[in-house]
């Protein structure tokens, strides 16, 4: 309604291509249906009725990395799993973003030992880190909103 009032009856809106594309991308970032450990359960809660991730255009989880835009690394990445995570990331088509959900994915968490990769950023580039063990659904949603802000700020000349 607000938009119509501003537009009047003209039916025309002017913007930059950059803003239009970024806006389109923020509203429909499809995440990869991919969970590793405890954080994946909180991620499922975020998808559930109470937190309702669909409000952010994110309800459509894609099981295939080819169709996904966003990888939410939910849980600890172990050394055995690291090549698989990297493989999944490589299979996603551009543009793609990564949220590192939880302490283990962000920095290894309490597991500073032989088995756990000390942060998923050792193997893939991360856009947003979400702290918590596991993060509450609200924290994950804040991470997603932060990512959307980041996407809105992307520049056309930086697109590869």
């Amino acid at each position: 309604m607000g938009v119509t009032q501003k537009l009047g009856d003209l039916g025309v809106v002017t913007t930059t291509l950059e803003t239009a594309i970024n806006w389109a991308r923020t509203g429909a970032t499809w995440p990869l249906l991919f969970g590793l450990a405890c954080c994946a359960i909180e991620y499922m809660s975020t998808q559930g009725g109470r937190y309702d991730l669909a409000r952010f255009g994110m309800e459509l989880n894609r099981a295939s990395p080819r169709q996904a835009d966003l990888m939410i690394v939910a849980g600890r990445v172990t050394r055995k799993m690291a090549p698989v995570v990297r493989n999944l990331y490589d299979q996603m088509s551009n543009p793609k973003w990564v949220i590192s959900m939880g302490d283990c994915a962000s920095c290894g968490g309490v597991y500073n030992n032989y088995a756990v990769v000390q942060g998923v950023d050792e193997i893939i580039p991360v856009d947003v880190y979400v702290a918590g063990c596991p993060p509450r659904p609200e924290q994950l949603m804040h991470g997603i909103l932060t990512l959307q802000e980041k996407i809105m700020g992307e520049r056309i000349k930086e697109w590869a």
Binding site: R76, T78, Y111, N113, A115, C133
Partner: peptide
């Protein structure tokens, strides 16, 4: 694929701190 070394981590912690690892 999710081997986290939790048992080994608990062995380096005092008994009360070990509880935190068992959650996960």
């Amino acid at each position: 694929f999710l081997h986290t070394g939790i048992e080994k981590t608990i062995e380096s912690k005092s008994y009360e701190k070990g509880v935190t690892c068992t959650d996960r």
